[in-house]
Every structure is written in structure tokens, then in C-alpha cells.
């Protein structure tokens, strides 16, 4: 995944079955963000792997005051990359089991 300066990681163990998973997002490189980034903590949230869209969560973070509008795309991409990795690992685990 491209280094966007925004890090997204699992906030809980992934058993490969649950539809919703807890993720944690934080800024590693403030310089890569266009807007001024106030929050220096890690933001934990739940994401439904089947139904939800990363860019929508990013927009909610902007609306909640965590990020500037101009960084919504970067945040959305960071979440998308992590979600894609989670799904890829799940598919690999399933195919290995078969």
C-alpha cells in the first residue's frame, strides 16, 4: 500500500468470519496532509467489510472534525488499502483451507 502518511491497522484480532472489524487510524506523517491536523491520537472505529465504503467513513471523520476536507481522499485511500489487505488475507486463508 502507498505510504499516505496515514496509518490504519486492525484494532482487534481478525477471526476471518466477523462482518464488522475494529480498525485504528492515526497520522504518522503530518506533512503529507494538506489540512492542519489537530488530533494527535489514534482513532478507533468499526468497519463493516461487506457493506461499508472507506470513503464514506473518511467523510464522517472530516465531518466529525478529525481531518480537513482536503484530506478526505487520503484518509479514504488509507482505509481502503487496509480493508483490501484484510479481505485478501481472508480469501487466502479460505483457499488454503480448501
Amino acid at each position: 500500500a502507498e505510504d499516505t502518511g496515514v496509518r490504519v491497522e486492525l484494532a482487534e484480532e481478525d477471526d476471518g468470519k466477523k462482518a464488522s472489524i475494529a480498525l485504528k487510524l492515526w497520522v504518522e506523517d503530518h506533512k503529507k496532509l494538506k489540512g492542519k491536523y489537530k488530533e494527535s491520537g489514534a482513532i478507533e472505529f468499526t468497519f463493516d467489510l461487506e457493506k461499508e465504503v472507506p470513503e464514506v467513513v473518511a467523510q464522517e471523520m472530516v465531518e466529525s472534525g478529525f481531518f480537513h476536507e482536503s484530506d478526505a481522499k487520503t484518509v479514504g485511500k488509507s482505509i481502503r488499502d487496509r480493508v483490501a489487505l484484510i479481505k485478501w488475507r481472508r480469501e487466502r486463508t479460505v483457499s488454503a483451507a480448501v
Binding site: G41, F45, E60
Partner: peptide, 27 residues
């Protein structure tokens, strides 16, 4: 560690806590 919560109008809860220690040292 201090945590704060923000609930978005769409209902999603965002829990803010300190960045994981190990990651800070990696930089």
C-alpha cells in the same frame, strides 16, 4: 490512558486514544 469519543450523526462511534507506543518509536 485518556480516551475521548465522538459519535458521528450517522451513528458511527470514533474512539480517540494515544497512538500506539511502539509505532511512535518506529518513526
Amino acid at each position: 490512558s485518556a480516551t475521548a469519543q465522538v459519535v458521528h450523526s450517522a451513528g458511527r462511534r470514533f474512539i480517540v486514544s494515544p497512538v500506539p507506543e511502539a509505532r511512535l518509536k518506529e518513526q
